[in-house]
Design a protein around this nucleic acid. Structure first.
Lengths: 196, 196
DNA sequence: TATCTAATTAGATATATATTTAATTAGGTG
DNA sequence: CACCTAATTAAATATATATCTAATTAGATA
């Protein structure tokens, strides 16, 4: 699960009113006014909270005549609630498979990077792709915040498809994005380990 | 799990920085400066976040010489993360056992409440206790917020041990507490059902 | 005891968010 | 089409919180 999705989920659940709404929806679909009166709040407040719950995907709406009923998707709730328990595990599993020596790494780099330092193409094999992503991402400094523009500009110095590279960095946990700004993740949570 | 504990937990996890800290602690104990430099933040910021994680109980500290290492308690994390999935279920199970007729209810009330409306004693049998708790809690209005003083004052009109009654109302989900103010919960989430 | 290091506290600032009232929108139904 | 009801949006307010710098505390060790 993506880091920002996880934050969004826990922010959504981290509120007394929204937990009370979830408790009600667990008993079955409810409509806005009903929820408002049961919790002693005004309808706009419920709209506000329901919006946050809907954004996570665990609540959805179905219209019946003039009334909109809100439903709880318990499967999604369960999936998202347990994601935090598995945090880092995907990486850990991958690490086992994705250890390699410095020599192997150099070979892959030599195959995919020109003498001028340009990326010939994005490797399709996961292992090789990760080597390449890690190789180029080392440009960034730990703790420094980068605008999307800066990230794009840097990628363009070695490859034209900046959108793909940027997305892969985030997806593969080399970097993390927070409102369109980027930061390097510590190597410990990168999905690849190079034996020294 | 108590409602406010649940909110506290999800508020704690609902933050990018704290999730990143959890991801680090999952690999093993870390000390403050280490975390700060890995995440590109200053030590006071880490103190701030660690405090919130410690408050939930999922992180604890052990000193080694001059350095304090923070550990993740994965069992607690798992327990708290999954609590939201089970929300209302305890009540639902109880509901099955705790249905009763209006006549039964009246009998219990007659046995425990004096003609003057005073509570003779708090029943020790769960079923009877819940009847008594529900009987007296009906005094409150849905959606209205009560100060602790008001709640105490009302309880004293029928029973001396106001602290126990107040605590039971919250524990049994008849009311909920938020920074020392109290509100009635909707009957739907009460742990008892009276057949009409 | 003096000094070093790691951690915490205090205070300041900027941002986010929970709630309300008033106004508006969106679908039904006569 | 006119009207009704439920839901949403807008704007305002109050509260909470994430982060930093500067100052302080707490232990360890020489």
């Amino acid at each position: 699960m993506q880091l920002d999705k996880m934050v969004q989920f826990h922010k959504a659940v981290g509120d007394v009113t929204r937990i009370r709404i979830l408790a009600l929806l667990k008993k079955g679909p409810r409509h806005g006014q009903e929820i408002a009166s049961k919790l002693g709040l005004k309808p706009p407040t419920i709209t506000h909270h329901i919006a946050k719950l809907k954004d996570t995907g665990m609540v959805y709406a179905r219209r019946e005549k003039n009334t909109i009923y809100f439903h709880l998707d318990e499967k999604k709730l369960e999936y998202m609630a347990t994601a935090i328990i598995r945090i880092g595990e995907e990486n850990f599993v991958k690490n086992q498979e994705l250890e390699m020596t410095e020599a192997e790494k150099q070979k892959i780099i030599k195959n995919f990077v020109t003498k001028e330092g340009k990326l010939k193409q994005i490797p399709s094999q996961l292992k090789k792709k990760l080597v390449i992503l890690s190789y180029f991402v080392e440009h960034f400094e730990l703790g420094k915040v980068y605008e999307e523009k800066e990230v794009n500009a840097y990628i363009k110095t070695f490859h034209e498809d900046f959108a793909t590279i940027r997305r892969e960095w985030v997806m593969q946990q080399f970097m993390f994005r927070e409102n369109n700004r980027y930061q390097l993740n510590p190597k410990e949570i990168w999905p690849i380990v190079i034996e020294k």
